[in-house]
Amino acid sequence: MNRIVAAGLGCRRHCSAEEIAALVRQALAQVDLAPGDLTGLFAPAFKQGESGLAAAALALGVPLVLMPDAALKGAEPRALTRSERVVALTGLGSVAETAALAGAGERSRLLQARLASANATCAIAVSE
Rank of each mutant, 00 (worst) to 15 (best):
A6I: 04
A59H: 03
A43H: 05
G61K: 06
N119F: 12
P44W: 10
V5D: 00
A125M: 08
R85E: 11
S117R: 13
E19P: 12
I124M: 04
Q48H: 13
F42Q: 03
A96R: 07
R82Q: 10
A116E: 15
R114D: 05
F46M: 11
A88G: 01
V87N: 03
L101P: 06
G52S: 05
V87R: 15
V95F: 01
P77S: 06
G93D: 04
L33N: 00
A21E: 08
A43I: 04
N119T: 15
P68S: 02
E18L: 14
G40V: 03
G36C: 02
A34L: 13
E84D: 13
H14L: 14
P63R: 08
V87Y: 13
D32A: 12
A56M: 08
R107L: 15
E18W: 10
R109A: 15
S83F: 04
A102Q: 03
V65H: 07
R114C: 09
E106N: 09
A7Q: 08
A71Q: 11
D69G: 04
C15Y: 05
A88Q: 14
P68Y: 07
T90W: 12
A43L: 11
C122F: 05
L72W: 02
A104F: 09
A125P: 12
P77C: 08
A99K: 07
G8N: 05
F46G: 05
L28M: 08
G61Q: 03
R109G: 11
F42T: 01
L38F: 02
Q112K: 04
P44H: 09
A57M: 09
D32G: 00
C122V: 10
L101S: 05
E84I: 12
T81F: 14
I4Y: 07
R13G: 03
V65K: 11
A118Q: 14
A99L: 08
L58R: 13
L64Y: 02
E128P: 12
R13E: 12
L41I: 01
E76V: 06
N2F: 13
E18D: 15
L9M: 08
A88C: 03
C15H: 04
V87A: 09
A79E: 09
A70F: 06
L53K: 06
V87I: 15
L23W: 09
A113I: 09
Q112H: 02
A116K: 15
L28E: 01
G36E: 11
G93P: 01
A54G: 13
G52W: 08
E19F: 07
G52C: 05
A75S: 08
A88Y: 07
C11N: 07
L72E: 03
T98Y: 04
A118M: 09
T81S: 15
